[in-house]
Design a protein around this nucleic acid. Structure first.
Lengths: 239, 239
DNA sequence: CAGGATGCTAAACACTTGTTCAGCCCTCCG
DNA sequence: CGGAGGGCTGAACAAGTGTTTAGCATCCTG
């Protein structure tokens, strides 16, 4: 019907009103949370009416779904750019850090995505149950990060740059959790060192201590590790 | 009608209606979030009217404040029990893990406390601005954890069980963030290993890989660390 | 026992918020 | 040119929610 013209007149690529609404939604959902963000606030941010937001996305939840989809696409695209290894990796990371400001709203949104999951397994009136099986978008994102991390460190073990682990999968889960924590606690970490959030200065100051931990550990001996191993071993008899 | 008996049968000390409302609020706030929890839902959970909830706490936000205060008190009490070091520490941790189920709602609430902070520096109509200065409860909690961690590891450095760091404060912030991440990602971690949240089995399986990291690190050499140090050093001339 | 204080409730109120409806404007096809 | 269709809006609607109010019952105090 209308696709031919629109296709030709479509703005540089991203400035269509629908996209602007989605971007504003990502910004506000990420900053204030889904529930506390009103459709009218999003509309005002874009400079349109609240009805138009609904007109484009059906419902507020539909808008959330569109945001989720967009963010997931961007994340996997970035991961693909970084993850193919080789020389491209460093460049990809640098360009990513360079355009940090543009993507800052996405980080807040991702943070919300990862933490918002409610433990509701009850049957809710989710008419459009089109998401894959029962795991939420945040769950899928976390799992993706885990498998990505696990692959990275398996390669590291293979080429000798990374220690082996008695439980590589669990280590990957833990390291993923650690890595994402700086996203979740962005504001807290920034506050703790007198910066406003994850500025480049904050990231720089974090780098060395973090690498210290991952290079030498924090404990000078394996007393804790041995004690834990003993405790686990002896616990097998007394469940 | 039936109150006479109830009055006489009133439970030991903690079962006052006000406390039961507060406990239910902690449970629901932690499970579903503050905004998505309605006053009526809390009332129904306790078996009282919605008006009574308001009667006891003034407003919903007053109830939140009471919950915050209670949780902060419990946390600092636990920290005091653990933190005085010596032999009591292990016992305290063990008893804490033993009564995990009773305090599980608190963990969810604390998780929300740490992640809910919104970056609203605008002037809101906060009539009862009685909180200390401008930092939120979650901020204060995080800071407490940081200083606790920093003290712990300073002691470790002093007695030689912990490596020195070029930036002890930052290391404490990072380690606090890492430690709290298992709280935030409780559900995700549980899911990743087929458990339902932070069960004791999950905690047990996490222990060894985590201690591996903190004992030996993950990298077999300091290539990354040296590279980062060089990068930081040379970056000083090109800001 | 009178009377106030207290714990508590049902109903109503005020307001927010997601969503719908009817219609305007503008572009483009026949 | 006419009409059709899509982008878009203002106003209204319906449901949900925090809070208020008036009132009931019970208990404690003088």
């Amino acid at each position: 019907m209308f696709s031919i013209l629109n296709m030709r007149l479509v703005e540089p690529d991203d400035a269509t009103t629908r996209a602007r609404i989605r971007d504003a939604a990502i910004l506000l959902f990420g900053r204030d949370g889904f529930r506390e963000t009103t459709v009218r606030a999003i509309a005002q941010e874009v400079g349109v009416s609240a009805a138009l937001v609904i007109h484009h996305f059906g419902t507020k939840d539909g808008l959330r779904l569109a945001c989720d989809e967009f963010i997931m696409g961007e994340v996997t695209a970035q991961a693909a750019g970084i993850g193919n290894g080789g020389q491209g990796t460093t460049a990809a990371i640098q360009s990513w850090l360079g355009e940090m400001d543009k993507r800052r709203p996405w980080l807040a949104y991702i943070s919300r995505l990862l933490t918002d999951g409610s433990s509701t397994s009850s049957t809710k009136d989710d008419s459009s149950n089109n998401s894959s099986s029962d795991t939420s978008v945040g769950d899928r994102l976390f799992d993706d990060f885990v498998s990505y991390t696990e692959r990275m460190f398996a390669d590291g073990v293979a080429d000798g740059s990374v220690h082996e682990s008695v439980d590589p999968h669990m280590r990957a889960v833990i390291l993923t959790s650690y890595g994402l924590s700086v996203l979740i606690f962005e504001r807290q970490i920034g506050r703790a060192i007198g910066e406003a959030g994850l500025t480049s200065a904050a990231a720089a100051r974090m780098t060395i201590p973090a690498l210290e931990i991952f290079t030498h550990g924090v404990y000078t001996n394996d007393a804790m590790l041995r004690a834990a191993k003993d405790a686990i071993a002896t616990k097998g008899s007394t469940p």
